[in-house]
Design a protein around this nucleic acid. Sequence first.
DNA 1: CAACGAATACTCGATTTCGAGTAGTTGAGA
DNA 2: TCTCAACTACTCGAAATCGAGTATTCGTTG
Lengths: 231, 231
Amino acid sequence: MVKRKVANPLAFAVLGSLSERAMHPYEISTMLKARGKDMSIKLNYGSLYSVVAALEKHGFIEAVETLRDGNRPERTVYAITEAGGAEFQDWLAELLGKPEKEFSQLEAGLAYLPAFPPDRVVELLEQRADVLDAEIEQVEGTHASMAAKGLPRIFYVESELQLALLKTQVEFVRELARQIAADELEGSAFWRKGFELVEKLGTTPADMLKDPVKYFGEEFAWLQELPPEAK
Amino acid sequence: MVKRKVANPLAFAVLGSLSERAMHPYEISTMLKARGKDMSIKLNYGSLYSVVAALEKHGFIEAVETLRDGNRPERTVYAITEAGGAEFQDWLAELLGKPEKEFSQLEAGLAYLPAFPPDRVVELLEQRADVLDAEIEQVEGTHASMAAKGLPRIFYVESELQLALLKTQVEFVRELARQIAADELEGSAFWRKGFELVEKLGTTPADMLKDPVKYFGEEFAWLQELPPEAK
DNA sequence: CAACGAATACTCGATTTCGAGTAGTTGAGA
DNA sequence: TCTCAACTACTCGAAATCGAGTATTCGTTG
């Protein structure tokens, strides 16, 4: 797993596009959009041109001609090199075969759940679930229309994965919201009580964590010795 | 959804940590690790210090004291400001309530599946599935040991989400590999044939896409008019 | 008690990333 | 025929990112 000379996933898409035929950068961008690959690989013009330059610098692609059409900006057409083809294959094998840790914003948010009162969290999670439902419906619509046009699944498997993950997320979020609302989530008694204390007495969370028995009673003594540094 | 002045998720974790009590950056990093939050939010020292500087610049945190302990490097202790508290709350609400498009490497890889012969893809997907299984087992082990210590679920819900997503991914990958191996994936007949042609005749993919009927027969005429720019 | 690995607490600067801006060109409708 | 929005095709520089490096101190083991 040596670090790639050009690491932006957009570079992977550029190599993939140029594997098919020589193109100029803007043409790559329109092709990616036309094929919906920009749903799977973040496309940004600034990145596109710098990534193309980096690929050229490292010998993965090379300029084959420069066209000028009237007063329009020049278009430099690039072709993939042998080294570029090898890099693409190696990269693809890595993307498919080796899972790499990815961080999602929802995970980050969940990590700080107790910072909001339970009811607020439930409300926000339900809001997210509703938005996700709409997104899912939209993706399913796209699939239906692609299938109707006769485009076989192999051309949009990546979107099917996305759909599966969205569905898992929405299910998780709804279930979590339900459990919090029903006070079924372990630790939520403590959580609710904590917020009541803040409202009524103005105690700070830090104080409560320092002496949980005082604020929550004996059954919360475990708090003291739990996550290192949590006190 | 105004762009955040400091957008790195690590900044969110810094605000969250300082909401609890004042700390110096390195202490934040050890606390995040001790609590396993570094599994949900990417922690990198370079980013940590630049993010702290940016948060201070924008008035979300402020230095409260600078300690010197022998010849050790200075430790600057930071506290959260009122603006910082508001920013944290706003950010948390956004993370929980508003899903944002995220790009995964597997999706990127799947988008270029046809670049490899079917058998190679099956092999790679199975490789990924095996690694994922091991990861899942590990996460489940961690959960079991946390539960055994009495730590309630609310302190690791984020990891439960991660687990659910990993399971969905492994299921998807295994099923996809199965379908490809069994030639059940729509479009895979064309895919297999294409690779045989490349091996036997040395035809390039671009040629085949230009005149699919010639290479694949009448039943593949749809290829010509399908994804815009795909020809 | 010396020596060595682990932990502490950062620093540095070479890339990378990004989004907004620019400037000409077509095409469709009034 | 005029106009105005959408498209084409990039450019720019400010800000973010990152991982490797540094220098000190603590703990522990032979």
